[in-house]
Design a protein around this nucleic acid. Structure first.
Lengths: 186, 186
DNA sequence: ACAATTAAATACCAGTCGGTAACAAAAATG
DNA sequence: CATTTTTGTTACCGACTGGTATTTAATTGT
């Protein structure tokens, strides 16, 4: 059981439940390693969560950035975001990043700082996407880019968070589609 | 320091922070009473939280039901909801009910059941409001009542939750107004 | 083969959690 | 006044938390 395997186990555990409800003891047990081994590798619980978050960003969140930077048009990109948020099986138990962001006050300083970084990067990506739509001549419902980016980000987060609470996929899609319809209004 | 005072202290503590992060020890300390006194009165942490939630529903949530059952028109009622969610000073630290609902898995069975009850009552109130708008001849953006009620409830919850994380009031109002504009679309 | 070094595990630390048993003061009841 | 019953307190319980000091096992260098 090498370090990457441990990271995988920890990510699965944090992702499946609530990061704040999974103890280091539980992780060492699931990974079949001793506690000092884990602490030697990651330094602290904060260090472990940071490593997990980085791995998650690179393995999962990257897909969302790919959608946003795909250079497709407004409708096509929004549809891809809706598909991802309401149907991707990886989001069945929610998004680890959003879970961490929702419980930010329970995180250590390292992980919290990284959450803020990723959040800012997300905002920037949403804004860049909307700006590119404007540049391409697509209207975005007459909204300012910054406000639209915040709105878009929060609606996606809301939809994925509802996935974690077992809400029906079709209903989530319905609500998200409705929320994002403000961008494609005549 | 009588029982109602203790309930007030507990409600303030739970409301201010996260209900899951406030221990019974902390509450007894803040209220200046001993732990067995609190347990004799409320039975368990679950019982205390249930009592707090009931008090909160009667003191705060009732105002939202009053708005919904006020018999006013669509636009006026939505505006009142937007005002409440984005400007009412009592929502500066968020809504205790939504905080409990978000951390439902951390609640005891009594409180969790009550959260579900209140949630269902909220859904019903939103649906009744939208139905009354339809009956009065107001269109609600061509949405089915049930879907609209879910959407409306979640958008209000999102807005108030953002209040708790210190988001700017004006931006929250902007986003909520945008989200609810789907109801008043021509 | 033996010594030095590294890796991993056992066992422990102080602190907090929700919850209670045992006990002291006070108030109601005979 | 004496007795019971309620009210409140101190001190404790076992279980868990994040984090480590210490010891044992495996590996390496010579």
């Amino acid at each position: 059981m090498n370090n990457d395997d441990v990271l995988g186990v920890a990510m699965a555990a944090y992702w499946q439940g609530d990061p704040a409800d999974v103890s280091v003891n539980a992780i060492t047990q699931m990974a079949g390693i001793s506690k000092p081994s884990l602490y030697r590798e990651f330094g602290s619980e904060d260090g472990l969560k940071l490593a997990v978050l980085d791995r998650y960003a690179e393995q999962v969140l990257s897909d969302m950035f790919v959608i946003l930077h795909g250079g497709k048009g407004l409708r096509e990109t929004l549809d891809a975001l809706i598909d991802f948020a309401s149907d991707d099986p990886r989001m069945d138990t929610g998004c680890l990043f959003y879970k961490m962001r929702a419980g930010k006050h329970r995180l250590g300083p390292l992980t919290r700082a990284r959450v803020d970084e990723i959040d800012a990067a997300g905002q920037a990506a949403y804004a860049a996407f909307l700006q590119s739509c404007l540049d391409a001549g697509d209207g975005i419902g007459g909204l300012p880019v910054a406000a639209g980016a915040r709105y878009l980000g929060e609606q996606i987060a809301l939809a994925i968070t509802q996935r974690a609470s077992g809400e029906d996929k079709a209903r989530i899609r319905e609500m998200l589609t409705l929320a994002l319809s403000v961008f494609t209004r005549p």
